[in-house]
Design a protein around this nucleic acid. Sequence first.
DNA 1: GTCTATAAGGTGATAGAC
DNA 2: GTCTATCACCTTATAGAC
Lengths: 205, 205
Amino acid sequence: MTGVSPKTRIQKKNTRAILEAALEIFSKHGFRGSTVDQIADAAGLSKPNLLYYFPTKEAIHLELLAGLMDTWLAPLRQLDTDGDPVDEIIGYVLRKLTMAQELPRESRLFANEIVQGAPRIIDQIEGDLRDLVNEKCDVIQGWIKQGKLADVDPHHLIFSIWATTQQYADFDAQIRGILRPRNDAHFSDAARFLETFYRSALTVR
Amino acid sequence: MTGVSPKTRIQKKNTRAILEAALEIFSKHGFRGSTVDQIADAAGLSKPNLLYYFPTKEAIHLELLAGLMDTWLAPLRQLDTDGDPVDEIIGYVLRKLTMAQELPRESRLFANEIVQGAPRIIDQIEGDLRDLVNEKCDVIQGWIKQGKLADVDPHHLIFSIWATTQQYADFDAQIRGILRPRNDAHFSDAARFLETFYRSALTVR
DNA sequence: GTCTATAAGGTGATAGAC
DNA sequence: GTCTATCACCTTATAGAC
């Protein structure tokens, strides 16, 4: 399922090169739009050699998605029950925005998969992801009950945070096209916008 | 470029059937993930017959995107300079949410295209779309100067509205997976959340 | 206008030498 | 472990009969 168990140095290096190349290609063209040839080229290997490390194209894709899910959820895990509610959520928003800026390929990899119905990761969504989200929604609901946060639906709050941050990676082409030619500093503009926006919507008055 | 000029009744009917089928298939699998066979089947035509109406697979895709762009931008065009600023924007948010609910395939068609770098509609993005957005941003900026709206970046406000509404179509699989098994009424929950959220973030205090 | 048949090229995966 | 060669299949698009 996950290809050759990486033992020798060269195997580790090649496995890593393949996954790096696959991330580059899959995130740009989606699963069906990417070819094994493209990935092998980008990894600096021949196609049969690549298929010596991973049995199928799908195995590479699956390994990527599974391996990145933890990284992807880390910012949400950090949400701390004992912190100041508004600051905790603003912090989460800004961490997600930073990830969109620094890991846009990872964001688009997931976006490509989910927009097409998430056929290959629906289990992870309905499992680990769902559990984590529900856990953090309980935390948020607790804050609301204590009067420390405006009364909003926690699930839809989290969805809105995902949407407003990840769009800067997923729909980058559109955002750059509209902001052209002044699109150099748009991430810091976005950070300012999102911080102001979420703070004013979440603060109890 | 746009296939046979529809003159006879049967030509109109078939052209419409092809575009309807293509929307169904392209929105689900993306351009590369869709096959002419699938579209022909869905349209109830043979593959050569379909290619009698449109010269290539790409021509069908292009015609779809171009034809839907107007529909897609209609809610933004409606934004009225003379209305109440907060209500105008809330109205826009709710119209977009309704579109995500009623036209999810159209939303995913664009999402699929844009997430992969918008190769086939970058011109429309940098043309009509950009012009309309800039025009409406001027309106919003005017409201802010008059003190009728909280001071936020108009471009990023519009981006956030797109993101928070279209996600309910584009990332439907993820949202349903997380809300399971109670996901029947999530659009009305989303409407309530978004209205409260945008109203409290945009109202001048 | 619509069909069957097929050309032409791409794509995932394997065989077998080294 | 890596390569060249190749298979088997899929996919877009066309030819030509009706």
